[in-house]
């Protein structure tokens, strides 16, 4: 008899396709998990960015993972019911971003202020003597920065 926690455990093994050190659970994109009376697994997800090209891929990965578990049915839905924010990243998710060389986004309260993009701690040397080079990076969720102490360019997972 499978319980909801089994689903959460299984989804911890489904990684972000672009940042393979971070699970979808820790990324905060899983918004709802339930098992119906008819033994159907029902999962709801929310996209990080509305135009994220990895959305369908992630949804399919979740679908496949659940299908391996022996439910009588699997339903995965992606919607905007709960808008994703970088504050949804777990502490473990933040550490996993750093493992991939990305500076984790700062937590913020209330409306996002973009001066958060300045003085981002460098993931290479820890210095805060850094500057924003561009709010847009190689994927929608990353910004480009430069560390004036160690001279390395680095990326941050954007606060949103």
């Amino acid at each position: 008899m499978l319980i909801v926690d089994d689903i959460w455990t299984a989804l911890k093994e489904v990684m972000d396709p672009e940042i393979p050190t971070v699970s979808l659970v820790d990324l905060g994109v899983i918004t709802h998990v339930e098992i119906t009376d008819g033994n159907v697994a029902r999962v709801k997800m929310t996209p990080t960015f509305a135009g994220c090209p990895a959305m369908d891929y992630m949804k399919n990965q979740v679908q496949e993972k659940l299908e391996e578990m022996g439910f009588d049915g699997v339903e995965v839905e992606m919607n905007f019911d709960e808008a994703w924010s970088s504050n949804r990243l777990t502490e473990e998710g933040r550490r996993d971003l750093a493992k991939h060389g990305l500076a984790p986004p700062p937590r913020f309260e209330g409306a996002l202020q973009l001066d958060l993009l300045n003085d981002v701690p460098c993931p290479n040397c820890g210095s805060r003597n850094t500057e924003l080079k561009s709010p847009f990076g190689p994927t929608l969720c990353r910004s480009l920065h430069y560390c004036k102490d160690c001279g390395e360019a680095f990326e941050q997972f954007k606060p949103l």
């Binding site: 996209p47 960015f49 509305a50 135009g51 090209p53 847009f136 190689p138 929608l140 480009l144």
Partner: peptide, 13 residues
């Protein structure tokens, strides 16, 4: 990169 990223966001919207 910026204009390409913004394009992708707009397409999502």
């Amino acid at each position: 990169i910026a204009f390409s990223s913004i394009a992708q966001d707009k397409l999502g919207h």
